[in-house]
Design a protein around this nucleic acid. Sequence first.
DNA 1: TACATATAATAGCAATACTATCATAAACAT
DNA 2: ATGTTTATGATAGTATTGCTATTATATGTA
Lengths: 234, 234
Amino acid sequence: MSATIRIELNGKLFLRDPEQTELGRTIVRESIRLIDELGFEHFTFKKLAQHITSTEASVYRYFENKHKLLLYLVSWYWNWLDYRISYHTHHVADAAEKLRTFIRILAGSHGSEPLEANVDVQALGRIVVLEASKAYLTKEVDTDNKAGLFQDYKNLCHKISLVVLEINPVYPFPHALVSTLFEAARKHLFFAQHLPSLTEVRLESTGENTLVGFLNHLAFSSLSKEASTVGASL
Amino acid sequence: MSATIRIELNGKLFLRDPEQTELGRTIVRESIRLIDELGFEHFTFKKLAQHITSTEASVYRYFENKHKLLLYLVSWYWNWLDYRISYHTHHVADAAEKLRTFIRILAGSHGSEPLEANVDVQALGRIVVLEASKAYLTKEVDTDNKAGLFQDYKNLCHKISLVVLEINPVYPFPHALVSTLFEAARKHLFFAQHLPSLTEVRLESTGENTLVGFLNHLAFSSLSKEASTVGASL
DNA sequence: TACATATAATAGCAATACTATCATAAACAT
DNA sequence: ATGTTTATGATAGTATTGCTATTATATGTA
C-alpha cells in the first residue's frame, strides 16, 4: 500500500499553490534538485526556469522570491517529518521510546513509510541540513514569524517537547532541548561531512559515535533525575 | 591598565591586512556597523564604500568579497572570545569551574577586560549570532576549510573540549558537546529575541531560565557519571 | 629628484532580482 | 459554438549587485 501525501502549507508561503498545477509541481520538484546541486546562494529563478524550460516570470507567479521558496521547502520537510514521527510513534506507549524514535528519524534514518511524494526527499533532507538555518537567520525574521511562516517548525517542536515533559515533568527546558536536538542533528550531519574536527559523530560508524548515540546521550542525560542537581550549581 | 589587542588572523582571510592602515581599520570598523544594521544579505561593498566615503575598488583591495570579510569578522570574534576565556580561566584550577566560566562568557556576559579594540564588540556579537552560521553553511565549505579559514573556531572548540575531558575523561563526545554549546548559545540568544516559543530561555530573566542555566544544565548533565548509563540504551 | 605605493575617480560588464506587457492556448461557462 | 477567464510563454526592461580595469593624484621613500 502506498499513498500520495497531501501536505497543507500556510498560504502565505506561495502566491499560487504549486501543488495545484503541473508547472507548480515541476517548480517544486526541480528547485529541490537545483538547490541541492548549486546551493541556495547560487540558485536563481532564471536558472530554474531554463532548467525546466519555462520562464522566470512563470516561476515568480508561484513564489514571491527564492527566500519564500526556501521557506516553503523547509516547511514541507518539517511536515513530512511530523508525519513520519506520528506514523512511527502513535502506537508507542512509552515516552522515552517515543523520544528515541523521534531522534532516530531526526538523524535521517529513512525507513519505509507508505508515502510517495513529488519530491526527492533525500535531496530535500540535504537542503535542510545546509540551508534551513538561513530560512530564519535574517533581518526579516519577525515579519516572517508574524506571517506564520515558521508555524510548522514550532508545532513540531512543541509536540516533541510534550513527550519530553512526559519523561521528566519537572525538566525546565523542554522546548529548548528539542530545538537544540533539531539544530544539533543538522549541524553534526554537516560537521561529520565537512568539519569533522568539530564532532566525534561519524556517519558510517556502527559503534558508539553515531549521530543517534550523541543525540540520545544529550537528551536522556538532560532528562535524568540526577541531572536536576548537577547543573544547578552556578 | 588597558591595552589594544593585536589579533593575528590567517592571511588568507584578506588580500591586504586591514589592521595595517587607517582605511583598513575603517573598513573593518564600519563594516561591523553596517552588517549589524542591514544584515549580511543587504550589506554590499558599494554601500560600505559610500558610508565611509571611499570607493568600492578600495574595499576590494582589502577583501576578496563580502563572504571573506564575514569570515574575517567571525574569526576575529572567536579570537577575542579565546582571549577572554584565557584571561578569566588561566588562574582557575578546577575544570568544572573553567567550563562554567566558558559558558558564562559564551552566553554573552561582557565583563571588564583590559582590552580596547577598534571594533564595536557588542555589534560584532550580534553579527555572530545572526550571521556566523552562514560563514560555513555554503557549497564552498571544503575549499574554505582546506585554506584554514575555520582554524580559529576549531582551535577554540578543541581547547574547551580538553576541559570537558578533564571533567569526565570517558565522555565520548567532547568536541561534539562543545560545538553544540557554541551553536546553542547563539541559537537561543536568537530564539529568545525572535522565536521565543522555541526556547524557555529568557534574556531578562534572573531566575532558572537563563541562557547560562540552560547551557550549564546541558553540559553538566551530559558529563555526570550517571549519564553514561542513561543514554546507552538505544 | 625619481620612484614606488595607496587611494580616489570613473567606467564598464555580466549576472541577479525583479516587473511589465502582450500574445496565445487551454479550460470553462453560457 | 462562442465568449471569457486563466495559465503560460515570449520578450523587454530596470535597478542593483558583484566585480574588474584604467587612469589620475597624493604621499611617502631612496
